[in-house]
Design a binder for these strands. Structure first.
Lengths: 126, 126
DNA sequence: AGGCGATATGTTCCGTCAGACATATCGACT
DNA sequence: AGTCGATATGTCTGACGGAACATATCGCCT
């Protein structure tokens, strides 16, 4: 009883300035880069064009005190990208914030989900 | 010391389905309707076209088990709109979720804000 | 009856953003 | 030297969304 089919996903967006915000998109991209070691691969994995992935990395690197993603060109396997220490820290903090926020809001979100007409959701797009 | 100029605003977006989500925009609109008693006035107040405000109300009313906004046409002052009991509940739950989430994520968000290059923000648009 | 002010709804137009293509460049390795 | 695979960057075009504009409708009040 009291089934919880899908209490709605909670998306957290941190708005630092009118020109820069950190949300699920950039966070997932950072995670993808950490795991694949490549901007292109991370982008492909989440169905994003290389161009878009690259521009997101640009804005991330420009927004923080130090670059989050270290890129290298050429070489044996063409090149690659990896998170810097700063990148790891930013990602970790975002994930932490996300988890804490979702946990804290859980009660209210579940209440809201019960008021929604239906709410069928399958994949976790974006 | 340790001034907290602007630890970034936390925006909460509740995604119920691929077709419907509840975020700051709709929440503020609901609040505006509750305060002004009019869709048009609420829209104007937040620099939004009447058409857009109206369509947001449409989607809100369609998404929940019962309408959130009761509208009336004609009459002494032309008509108006007000939140239903369901509307009040939804708004209250969203505000509560927002507050709890922001509080829970405060630590991490402040840490992130300290890592950002600058972060000047003035008004609270959108 | 006519006016007023707000809801209701359609149409048109335009700026923006994202995707698709197209290259250029780099550097270790064979 | 040439290949390979990834980063780096520019151009163009189509789709989407929002703004602007235009009406229609409703119902209390004067």
């Amino acid at each position: 009883m009291t089934q919880d089919p899908s209490p709605a996903r909670v998306r957290l967006r941190l708005v630092f300035s009118p020109d820069f915000a950190l949300g699920p998109g950039k966070a997932d991209l950072l995670e993808g880069i950490a795991e694949t070691g490549s901007i292109a691969a991370a982008g492909r994995r989440m169905g994003m064009s290389y161009k878009r992935a690259w521009s997101l990395v640009e804005s991330l690197n420009a927004a923080f005190a130090a670059p989050l993603v270290a890129r290298s060109r050429g070489g044996a396997r063409g090149g690659g990208a990896a998170l810097t220490e700063m990148g790891e820290r930013v990602l970790a903090h975002y994930r932490s914030a996300q988890l804490k926020a979702a946990t804290a809001a859980k009660e209210d979100v579940e209440s809201l989900s019960r008021l929604v007409r239906i709410a069928p959701q399958d994949d976790q797009a974006d």
